[in-house]
């Protein structure tokens, strides 16, 4: 049962920033936080509802000058909004497909991109997909803002670099001509293994293994031919759970890497 809490509804980013603290925590979709509160794992004094903060809820292309063009995904964008956005579907079809497959219909309608990243549930589809696309998150706090690559943002299970007085404003994804693909295996509600792969125009390649370990494994290669699924399978540090022991998860990693690579090449589901 949900314990009692205060609800704070800021209308602007600055109001939101001044409202959050150790005990007054950011809240948007609540798909993870409310479960944790119901289970008695978290008991914040207040939920700071970010849904009415306009700066956090938008998807737009941004000309970043030296950084090149970037896609900005506001932190409170829901999975559904991400999946349906015309720009995302056009420029980042892999991301749109991943968002369309997150959790279940209720989670996609309520759950947000920022929530998914900040809660840092290790079994996430979005994290490896964004990390593969070389996305960064923008955090803002009392000391100003900072930008952290998604691959470095997650420190471990339910653990990120975000400080309690910081808000995630948005995710930024560089717009570059890449080919990208994501495959996962979902045995229970959350994925047991997820593999994202990105190949740049010059052939360089990034592989991200999500959901298997405490944090995603990010590997960069000069070319896709360098990817050795068995070597990656040996390198992951699987967390055994009810969906599989360590050896099964290692095996799955190799299988899913091969499938991701084959599907990327053929465009067909293996």
């Amino acid at each position: 049962m949900l314990p009692a809490f205060a609800l704070i509804r800021p209308r602007s980013l600055s109001e939101a920033l001044s409202a959050i603290s150790d005990d007054d925590v950011p809240y948007s979709g609540g798909t993870e936080l409310l479960l944790a509160m119901r289970a008695g794992l978290q008991r914040p004094r207040a939920l700071v509802d970010l849904k009415a903060v306009p700066e956090l809820r938008r998807i737009a292309l941004l000309d970043g000058g030296a950084e090149g063009t970037e896609l900005r995904i506001g932190a409170t964008t829901t999975h559904d909004e991400l999946a349906r956005d015309a720009v995302v579907r056009d420029s980042f079809p892999m991301l749109a497909r991943v968002a369309a497959g997150v959790g279940n219909a209720r989670v996609r309608a309520q759950g947000t991109v920022g929530g998914n990243l900040c809660f840092a549930e290790p079994r996430s589809d979005l994290v490896p997909a964004l990390a593969a696309l070389d996305a960064s998150v923008v955090l803002i706090g009392p000391g100003g803002s900072r930008r952290v690559p998604v691959a470095e943002f997650i420190l471990g299970m339910y653990w990120t670099v975000r400080e309690p007085d910081e808000l995630m404003v948005e995710v930024r994804v560089p717009v570059r001509p890449v080919r990208a693909h994501y495959v996962n295996l979902r045995i229970t509600e959350r994925p047991s293994v997820g593999v994202a792969i990105r190949v740049d125009a010059d052939g360089r390649c990034r592989l991200v293994i999500g959901s298997v370990g405490e944090q995603p494994l990010v590997l960069d290669y000069d070319g896709i031919h360098e990817v050795d699924p068995d070597a990656v399978s040996a390198a992951v540090e699987p967390v055994p759970d009810l969906t599989g022991a360590e050896d099964y998860k290692r095996h799955l990693v190799a299988v899913m890497i091969r499938r991701a690579m084959a599907e990327l090449e053929t465009g067909k589901k293996q």
Binding site: L35, I187, T188, E189
Partner: peptide
């Protein structure tokens, strides 16, 4: 029980 919830106890979808 290790899975007394619908997230970890898998029912048909």
């Amino acid at each position: 029980l290790a899975n007394a919830n619908v997230v970890d106890y898998r029912v048909p979808r």
